[in-house]
C-alpha cells in the first residue's frame, strides 16, 4: 500500500474537502491502484531531462499596462451566495472574544 486512510484524510484537508468515511475508504483503494500504475514512470531514466510545463510557449507575452474598464461592483457581486453592501460576506475567520 502506498496510500493509507490517514494520507487521504490529510490530503483531503489540504484540498479543503470534508470527505465522508466511506469516501475515504473508496479513495484510499482507488488512489493506491492509480499510484501503482503511475509508478511505471519510475522505470524511465530521466536524468538531465528538463521538465515540460507548457508544451507550446516560446516567450512570455507582455502587454501595455493601461487602465481599462472592468466589471462594476454589481456585476462582480451578482453571483455571490451572500453579500453585505459592496462586499462578499463570509463566516467568521477570526474567533471573537467573549
Amino acid at each position: 500500500m502506498k496510500i493509507t486512510r490517514e494520507v487521504v484524510e490529510y490530503v483531503a484537508h489540504l484540498g479543503r474537502l470534508d470527505l465522508e468515511s466511506h469516501e475515504v475508504d473508496l479513495y484510499t483503494n482507488q488512489l493506491d491502484r492509480i499510484l501503482e500504475y503511475i509508478d511505471k514512470l519510475n522505470t524511465l531514466n530521466t536524468e538531465g531531462i528538463e521538465p515540460t510545463g507548457h508544451a507550446m510557449i516560446a516567450q512570455c507575452l507582455l502587454r501595455e499596462d493601461v487602465v481599462k474598464d472592468s466589471f462594476n461592483v454589481e456585476e462582480s457581486l451578482r453571483n455571490a451566495p451572500e453579500r453585505k453592501g459592496n462586499f462578499f460576506k463570509v463566516p467568521p475567520i477570526i474567533e471573537l472574544e467573549g
Binding site: A12, G15, L35, L41, T46, I49, E50, P51, T52, G53
Partner: peptide, 26 residues
C-alpha cells in the same frame, strides 16, 4: 483533487509532479 493535491504535496512533488514533467519532455 485528492490525487492532484497528493502529487503536489510536500515530499511527493519531485517524485510525481516533477518526474511527470520530465517524461512529458520525452
Amino acid at each position: 483533487i485528492i490525487l492532484g493535491t497528493f502529487v503536489l504535496s510536500s515530499g511527493y512533488y519531485d517524485a510525481y509532479y516533477r518526474k511527470a514533467g520530465k517524461v512529458r519532455t520525452l
